[in-house]
């Protein structure tokens, strides 16, 4: 299994744990008397699960298992592969930190971090699409 796939899959498992932890906090908020601000974790939970776990697992397995691009570049442009990994994770982590803060502490004016997160994830996904497209081919 290529190194990048291992990074994706292991990162995905960590995000899954974090997502489930966020869900435990959400589920126990009334029982434990947590402040209502805990509900800002709801979109964080969902995106940790769908981007952090599901998407990273798909990216990792697709990078590993899809048909080879060429003999010289079996998995497409490796730089694009690593850039995708970096941008997706930076975008997700920035979102996880900034999204609750934007609601809880609006006076900190951290909204621009969500723009950074959006652009990082957008670039990562289109890089993945462009790099994976030529590997989806008939034999």
């Amino acid at each position: 299994m290529p190194l990048l796939s291992r990074y994706y899959i292991k990162a995905g498992m960590l995000y899954l744990l974090l997502a489930l932890l966020a869900n435990v906090l959400l589920a126990s908020s009334s029982t434990l008397g947590l402040p209502p601000a805990i509900n800002t974790l709801r979109p964080v939970y969902f995106h940790l699960l769908m981007v952090g776990w599901v998407t990273e697992l798909i990216f990792g397995v697709a990078y590993w298992m899809f048909p080879k691009f060429t003999r010289e570049l079996p998995r497409g442009n490796p730089l694009a592969g690593w850039a995708t990994f970096g941008l997706l994770n930076i975008g997700l982590i920035v979102r996880v930190v900034a999204e609750p803060l934007v609601t809880i502490k609006p006076e900190w004016n951290l909204g621009w971090l969500l723009v950074v997160s959006a652009l990082c994830q957008l670039a990562a996904v289109w890089l993945f699409v462009v790099n994976t497209w030529p590997r989806i081919k008939e034999r």
Partner: peptide
């Protein structure tokens, strides 16, 4: 199907990125 899925992926994330941008700024 996989290429169509990739197009939906790119477009769906583009819509999400617009909403996230709009949430921040």
């Amino acid at each position: 199907m996989l290429r169509a899925a990739l197009l939906h992926f790119g477009l769906g994330v583009s819509a999400g990125a617009l909403m996230l941008w709009n949430k921040g700024v």
